[in-house]
Amino acid sequence: MAFVLTFLLRRLAQGVIVVFLVSFLIFTLLRLIPGDPVRMMLGTNVSEVTLERKAKELGLRDPIPVQYANYLYNFIQGDLGQSYLLGESGGAAPTAQNKQGGQISAEAEIARDAESKTTRASVFKLIGDGLPYTLQLAGLGLLFTFMVALPLGISGGLKPEKWQARLAFFTGSLLISLPNFWLALVLILLISSNANLLPSIGYKGFAYTLLPAIVLAVELVPVIIRGLSVSIASSTQQGFVDGGIVRGLPWSRIVWRHVIRNASIPMLNMFGVQIGGLLLGGVFVTEYIFDYPGVGKLTIQAVLQRDFPIIQGVAILAAGVLVLVNILVDLVATYIDRRLKY
């Protein structure tokens, strides 16, 4: 038990460092690159004076370290700041209005913000609103992924010279060659508009999650297949497989109890390092194309509009989630293979 505690503490400490590093890098990057968010907020036809006043008000003219310190101070108190552009009751956040597919134009929003300093939406709330949708999409996407990738990957790894391996190989090669945005377009065209089988753009119910989830799964399946077949195949090369045969264990038992158990370690590691990033990236693009009201769409729009607080908030959140996923993965891996403890 002492081990688990030490492990958790050590990893959490490392994780906190990583999250801070991410927040700092993103923060600095956002402020170093050209492009003035205030100009974006207020439009092109406001005077320099107004512009400067607004910038000062937002703290954008302070030195970067000061800005970062202020940000951190608020962050520790649980405040991720407010969106520069989105209002409390509108914008790209998935409000009732937005769920019906309508979108308020950014110009209108900026205009409103400029004339009256209405309450701007808190980043925390914006992310909170989008998160359930994103989780639903990611969960469904992973479910589809495993349904396809597990049987293909495992059988491909167990029979490296047979048709199973070839099937896994060609499926993987084909799927990894499909750009997600193009696939999304074609699916919208074929399944949504031509055949009218599934709805796509926007969100008006669970069915709207299906097509994006399929696109997401197509992106993940080849990665999992490849990882699985390699780790299963290398697991069957280990001494205990031959050892099991000469010791009289039934083949099925060797495979299900031992081969898969040992193959799960590299799989878990891959999941921690790669899938987290892939899944996030995939979710973002998919949401953007399908106009799906999750965190991904929020982020991409924020980036395009230079809405710094949202970008920072999402980056920190993403880093935090990935750090936690990795800790969990390592904990499970250590439970399965005790050697990792040493």
Partner: peptide, 27 residues
């Protein structure tokens, strides 16, 4: 295969020259 697999282990014991890797390291 099943028949001989049952004989191995029950009627014949086999000890190899690689004790370190004969068993599953995770169990």
């Amino acid at each position: 295969r099943t028949e001989i697999q049952r004989l191995r282990g029950r009627e014949f014991g086999y000890i190899g020259n690689n004790p370190g890797s004969a068993l599953d390291p995770t169990v």
